[in-house]
Every structure is written in structure tokens, then in C-alpha cells.
């Protein structure tokens, strides 16, 4: 079913099977076991809800079309008989509350899935994994990282927290916007969109070190500091081309950014097309990953509520983030 056939009255019936689980290598079996044990029991209930929700949606769409046509007709009558010039925007005004009213069943359904099903999906990665669409990282803590660009508004989305290979991990989607004045108008510009990943570290440190995208040699020639941190010139020319490092403690920055760690950061930057910055502060490593991808989302409402697609997708996204721990070898006491 698609949106067109849905509007034109295609029969809405429960679906019990969509796509099979999708995992790389030998993970398929464990994924299936977790699915059968924790997620499958919820599917029947949510499939019935999905069907009810689609029926409600269609009914509301039909009613909305009727209401809109009536309002349009009345406005048109007023316009032609009373000779009142009504702006075309006024004709479209009823669309806003009607759209909100129509989308309510879907929004409710989606938020219920996120509240009841997603936490069970995330339990697959460990018993202490929690998922919350409402919880968020502390903005003051994030600000203290000195990584955030200037912004006016911050919008947090899904939040995940847990422990992977002994490393505490917290993931939060974040969008930062800024009001920019252009000519006489002001428009909202997105200055950051992506995920913030906070990881615990085996190495102890007191200072503050940030690894930011290279500002260019001219900028570095003109200024040797960044938000009251001084520049750390490192030995690796390839690393220096990609990143600039600033720290409150020159020795500690080199203690954290060993030659092999620099190699690993470069590897990670290659994986995420260079959209990668990080900060070591308050005994944590904060990674700022710019990306347009909206993670941890539900598939189409027209697909059955079996959550196999969502489970596979979340697993793929989480593996990508866990790879950072593996690449950076944060879970090993290598001393490097």
C-alpha cells in the first residue's frame, strides 16, 4: 500500500510478515533470538493499533477534505458576493489545524512504539541500555566541551545510554539553529545537525583538549588559540591537515593523542567523511558527529508493525557508533 492507494480506499488489513531481520555475519542468530523473545510478543498488539490508526487517519483525511471544501466554498461566496478581497493565504489557513488533527493518530502511534518497543530493541545491546525520545544530555555540559558552534536554539531528539565493552556510552541527536539576518529578513540556519556521543575513558585527565576540523593555515598563523585553549602542534602532518588540536595542557594533550591514537582518529574521520570533532574533558570523550541522517526512526506506517526493519536498522546504526569504541580502542588498556 502507498499513500495514493490508501487515500483511494485500498483495504487496510493487518500484516504479520514484512522484511526478515538483516544483520552482518554471525549476528543474525542472536538478533533473531532477541526478537523472538522480546519484540515479537508486542507485534500483534501494535499491528492492531497500526490498522486502527490508519483507519482513523483515512477517516480524518476524508473529513478534512470535506471541511476544507466547505470553508473554501464559504470564503469564495463571501469573496464574490460581499466583494471582500480575501487573500489566498486565508483559504489555506484551515489546512494547518486540519493537518495537525489528521496526523494525531500517527504521532500517537509512533510515540507509543518509541516508548514501548524501542527500549526493548535497545536491550539487545546490553541490559543497562536505555532509550528515551524525551531525555537529553545536559546542555551546560555540552557547552563546556567548547565544541558547539554559536547557536540560538537547541533541539534534542532520541537519547540512548548504556555500557559497551566496559565503556559507558551516551548518544543524543542534536540540532542547533541560529537566526541569521539576511538583507531585511531573518532566517533560521542550521549550524549543526547530527549526534553527540559521550564515552567514558580509561585514561585519567584534568585538562581540556579539543580536536576540531582544520581551520586552515592562514587562520592558524593569525591566531594560536581557540576559546581560551592554546594550539597543540602535533608531529603527524596528515593529522595536522585534517584537524587542529587545542588544549589547556600541552603535555596532557600529547598524553591523550598518542601517535597511534591520531592514526585511529584519522581512520574514524575517513569513515564519517571528515564530519568529526571531539573533546576530552571532565574525564569523558565527547564526539560530535555531523550528519543529515535521522537515526533511530520508525519505518513507513504502511509497513506492518513487526519491527523487524526497525530492529535491523537500529542494529546497523548502533554498530556504526560502537565501531568508534573499537577503532579508538577505548575498551583496551593499551596505554596508547
Amino acid at each position: 500500500m502507498n499513500i495514493i492507494s490508501f487515500i483511494f480506499g485500498a483495504r487496510i488489513k493487518p500484516k504479520r510478515q514484512t522484511k526478515p531481520l538483516n544483520a552482518v555475519g554471525d549476528e543474525q542468530e542472536s538478533l533473531q533470538t532477541h526478537y523472538d523473545e522480546h519484540i515479537e510478543p508486542l507485534t500483534r498488539k501494535f499491528e492492531n493499533r497500526r490498522v486502527a490508526c490508519l483507519k482513523a487517519l483515512r477517516l480524518r483525511i476524508y473529513m478534512s477534505i470535506g471541511i476544507f471544501a466547505a470553508v473554501f466554498f464559504i470564503c469564495f461566496l463571501f469573496d464574490s458576493t460581499q466583494r471582500i478581497v480575501i487573500s489566498w493565504l486565508f483559504y489555506l489557513l484551515p489546512l494547518v489545524p486540519l493537518f495537525w488533527w489528521c496526523s494525531r493518530p500517527i504521532t500517537h502511534y509512533q510515540s507509543d512504539v518509541k516508548l514501548q518497543v524501542f527500549p526493548k530493541i535497545f536491550r539487545y545491546f546490553g541490559d543497562d541500555f536505555i532509550f528515551s525520545p524525551t531525555h537529553s544530555m545536559s546542555m551546560t555540559t555540552l557547552k563546556r566541551s567548547k565544541l558547539l558552534p554559536g547557536y540560538d536554539k537547541a533541539h534534542f531528539d532520541d537519547y540512548v545510554q548504556g555500557t559497551y565493552r566496559g565503556i559507558e556510552i551516551a548518544i543524543n541527536e542534536l540540532a542547533l539553529t541560529k537566526e541569521v539576518r539576511r538583507d531585511k529578513n531573518s532566517e533560521t540556519k542550521t549550524v549543526f545537525n547530527g549526534v553527540m556521543v559521550q564515552l567514558s575513558c580509561h585514561k585519567k585527565f584534568n585538562g581540556h583538549t579539543v580536536v576540531v576540523r582544520s581551520r586552515g593555515s592562514l587562520m592558524n598563523f593569525l591566531s594560536d588559540s581557540f576559546k581560551r585553549l592554546s594550539r597543540v602542534k602535533l608531529e603527524d602532518p596528515r593529522f595536522e591537515k585534517l584537524f587542529d588540536v587545542f588544549s589547556s595542557d600541552q603535555v596532557e594533550a600529547r598524553y591523550l593523542l598518542t601517535v597511534s591514537f591520531m592514526e585511529r582518529l584519522q581512520e574514524l574521520a575517513d569513515c564519517f567523511s571528515g564530519q568529526f570533532q571531539c573533546a576530552f574533558y571532565e574525564d569523558k570523550l565527547l564526539i560530535m558527529l555531523a550528519s543529515r541522517e535521522n537515526r533511530f526512526e520508525l519505518g513507513s506506517i504502511f509497513n506492518g508493525a513487526t519491527f523487524e526493519y526497525e530492529f535491523s536498522q537500529i542494529n546497523r546504526e548502533m554498530r556504526q557508533l560502537f565501531a568508534m569504541i573499537e577503532v579508538l580502542k577505548l575498551d583496551e588498556y593499551t596505554g596508547l
Partner: peptide
């Protein structure tokens, strides 16, 4: 490890 880091800073 700290000595090694201090050495890198010194040499730079």
C-alpha cells in the same frame, strides 16, 4: 606515558 608526552612537547 606522561614522560613520553612531555618529551614530545619538549622536542616540538
Amino acid at each position: 606515558a606522561h614522560i613520553s608526552a612531555a618529551r614530545r612537547f619538549f622536542n616540538a
